[in-house]
Each structure stands twice: as structure tokens, then as C-alpha cells.
Write a protein that binds this DNA or RNA. Sequence first.
DNA 1: CCCCAGGGCCACT
DNA 2: AGTGGCCATGGG
Length: 288
Amino acid sequence: MKKVIALPEKFNFNAATTDHGWYMLPPFHHNENILNRVEALSNGNIVKLHIHQNHDQLIIEIGDKKTLTNKEWEEIIHKVNWMLRLDEDFSVFHKMCSDSQDMQEVVKENKGRLLRSPSIFEDIVKTILTTNTTWSRTIAMTTNFVTLLGERYVDELELFAFPSPEAVLKRDRNFLNQDVKLGYRSDYIYELAWNVSNGVYDLDVLKNPEVPTGEVVQKLKEIKGVGPYALSNILMLLGRYDFLPVDSEFKKHVKNKYFAGELPPVSQLQQLYKEWGEFKFLAYWFDR
DNA sequence: CCCCAGGGCCACT
DNA sequence: AGTGGCCATGGG
């Protein structure tokens, strides 16, 4: 079973999947230019997706012999569309890059798209799991989270879908701490799952580009565990690039590149990439 | 033992 | 609005 989607004229599959580290976090897997992922559909069906590019087409294959309904395919295509930002317009950003000496490669290679998860819940959880830790620990925590709480793909022992908020609530904070080893982040993740599951947070509305960024910022700030860095990262995942992710990596980068080893106060760091307006995050990202 | 990691919360100014 | 102590965990 497979489906073929026409791609935007300017599209770089390898860049869209690997220019950001998200492809290394389960349930994403990536090898030999194929993006793989176990996905739970809204009707409970668990499918394994294999996604790759063939010229101007995107091929989505299902890793088993199941026949999917049109409605299921519709959901898959909708999710893949979101993950790879197929509908997002990068023309303004590319125009700015073409006027910049250091950003020619972005235009030439059609860069700009950064992989994201189908659901905001998943991307917020993963973002919180990047805070105050190392990337290797983020991978470990995410792997534990998916393996211990996610629904298993029927045909293989080690493949799981990303856990639903309800799956998290079936366990307690202690399980998240001791077994999933999320540390103090356990309370944040548990509370997020509770608020999503009980309708306190409506995360899907944040996907709507019509909603002003200021409103999105206010809603994201309500989430415990989401500070300035996480806010910027989640906004990027939502397709809003106004805020810089000022974390240890950001500081390391600008310290070497712009301040010759002498780091100014954070208030000054927030002013960097100002000339990039609503594309500050992308400007920083592709400046590295 | 220490410090830090792609930080953030809370209490106190 | 800004600052310092604290937070679980693992690696150096």
C-alpha cells in the first residue's frame, strides 16, 4: 500500500527531515533517506509509515499489508503534510537569504523546512525533554517515554507510537520519574498530559496561522516547564520564527562567532538577528 | 566530591 | 522585571 503526493516546486527532503535533530527522536527513525514512523490514527489503528522522495513526488508507504480506508489515508496525508511543512511558504525568507552573503546555501539547497511531529502535544513533550540536559539524555528520555508508554506496533517488538496524554495519566508521576527517568520534568509532563486530556489546553488551535503570535505566546506561557527557550522552540515548530532560542548552544555559537569569547548579558543576546524580523529563529539556525 | 547539560519555577526584592 | 536557590538525572 502506498500513496503519492505532489511536492512543492522547491523542496529538499533530506534537508526537511535532517536539518533539525527531531528525526533522531522516536517514534521517528531515519535511515537511507527514508523517514520512518509508527503512528496511531484517530480510530486507534497503528500504522508504520515509510516516507521518501522520488523526484517531484513524495512516496508514503505503509509497512504492512493492511488496506487502509480513504479516511485513514486522508489523516496520514494530513499529518505528513504538517510534519514536512509542505504548505508553508518560505519565499520571503528565501528572498532575505538571497540578499545575505552567508545564506546563499539556504536558497540554493531549498532549506528552511524543519521536521516536526504530527501533534503539538508530542512536540511540547519533546521540547521539555531538551531542557537542562544533554542531547543524548533527550534521546534516552524520549526513547524511554515512547517505549514504556506508547502503543506497540503489532508486527514488531521494539516499535511504538508516541504515547497519548491518556496513556501518561494511566501511570503516576513516580513512574515518569523512576522508570522513564524524566527527573523533575515528570511533574511538567504529567500536568501537561492532564490539562490536554481534560480540555484545559486546546493545543490544536495553536496550529492555526490566523491566530496572532501574541495569543499563541500567552497560551504557551501557561504551560509549566515552558520558559523562554522552550517557548521559542515550540513557536518554531508551529511555524513562527520571531523568537530566538537563547540556550547554552545559542550562547556557545554567538560567543565564538560574534563576541570573540566574551558573552554579553542575555538582554543583548535577544537583540541578535534583529534584521531578520519574523525569521530570527531560522536565521540563527542556518547561521550555525 | 565537584560542575554542567540545547532551563524553568518560585520566592523574594 | 530582575535575581538566586533549587530541581532529578547522568556524564565528565
